[in-house]
């Protein structure tokens, strides 16, 4: 059941999006997120959906694969849509019991849904098309200036990359532990909240023990391969901005300008 989480997993490919410099993609993602919050009418939202669709097509990551990533946040999505739908004042269209649906509510719920879906798809598109190591590089080099104010950029980037590598391993392990304890009669499905939280102990303790064991092993393996922090490291695939990156950045500014114009003027 936990294996369905595909959020953040690299999807191998050779598309133009895959080949973009991770810094370009990071910047694009950031600007895209900003644009989603700037947009406040259907034209601007339409433009951002179209832009995302274009990039998804260019990336050749199958759309069904992208949708699986949404599954993990489906609950949050539904809750926020419902909140907007029922709790917005305005012209009442339908009302029953204490609930009323307003025209403004529908509008906001739809916008909220579009915004969230675009946000998640946009952000996950970056991790789908960028290997964690490239991402690490991108963060390290793109945010390198933060080192000046003593932010351990390299360490943060390395931790992220390792976390991404171990997510599938630990989810598989979690699955196995749940099965093993279920085989010992553990009941994880019934009872009230407290009872169920208590029932998680036999799952969580082995998971933590295993995570710590793996962390210890990994630290040793890294040391054995001469890891000693970011100092003096070189790269097999050093980042270099190519023509396509500059083109992507120009398009990005055009897009951002377009969204602002659409939002302000219309």
């Amino acid at each position: 059941m936990f294996r369905d989480i595909t959020l953040g997993q690299y999807y191998p490919g050779q598309s133009i999006i895959h080949r973009l410099d991770p810094r370009t993609k990071l910047l694009w993602t950031l600007v895209y997120i900003v644009s989603l919050f700037v947009a406040d009418n259907k034209y601007a939202y339409g433009a951002s959906v179209l832009a995302l669709a274009a990039v998804i097509i260019l990336s050749s990551v199958p759309f069904t694969h992208m949708l699986k990533g949404l599954k993990a946040v489906l609950v949050i999505l539904i809750i926020s849509v419902l909140f907007n739908l029922f709790l917005t004042d305005g012209r009442v269209l339908v009302s029953f019991w204490i609930f009323k649906i307003t025209l403004e509510g529908i509008r906001r719920a739809v916008f909220m849904a579009v915004r969230l879906v675009c946000l998640i798809l946009g952000a996950s598109l970056m991790t789908y098309t960028t290997t964690p190591n490239q991402l690490t590089d991108g963060i390290e080099r793109g945010l390198g200036f933060l080192k000046l104010i003593r932010v351990p950029v390299h360490e943060i980037a390395m931790m992220m990359s390792i976390a991404l590598r171990f997510i599938p391993i630990l989810t598989e392990e979690l699955d196995k532990i749940i099965k093993a304890q279920t085989a010992r009669g553990a009941d994880l499905e019934s009872g009230n909240f407290i009872k169920r939280a208590k029932a998680m102990t036999p799952i969580l303790i082995p998971l933590f023990v295993s995570a710590f064991r793996r962390a210890g092993d990994l630290a040793q393996a890294m040391e054995a391969r001469c890891y000693h922090g970011g100092r003096g490291r070189t790269r097999m695939n050093p980042l270099s901005m190519a023509g396509r990156d500059y083109a992507a950045i120009i398009i990005m500014f055009a897009y951002l300008g377009g969204i602002i114009v659409l939002s302000v003027l219309l």
């Binding site: 793996r214 092993d217 393996a221 890294m222 070189t234 097999m236």
Partner: peptide, 17 residues
């Protein structure tokens, strides 16, 4: 527990890097 990177060749490059 000894493969650090999420792509085979990037992992092999870890030591020399």
């Amino acid at each position: 527990n000894q493969i650090i990177a999420s792509v085979v060749e990037e992992d092999v490059a870890f030591g020399p890097e």
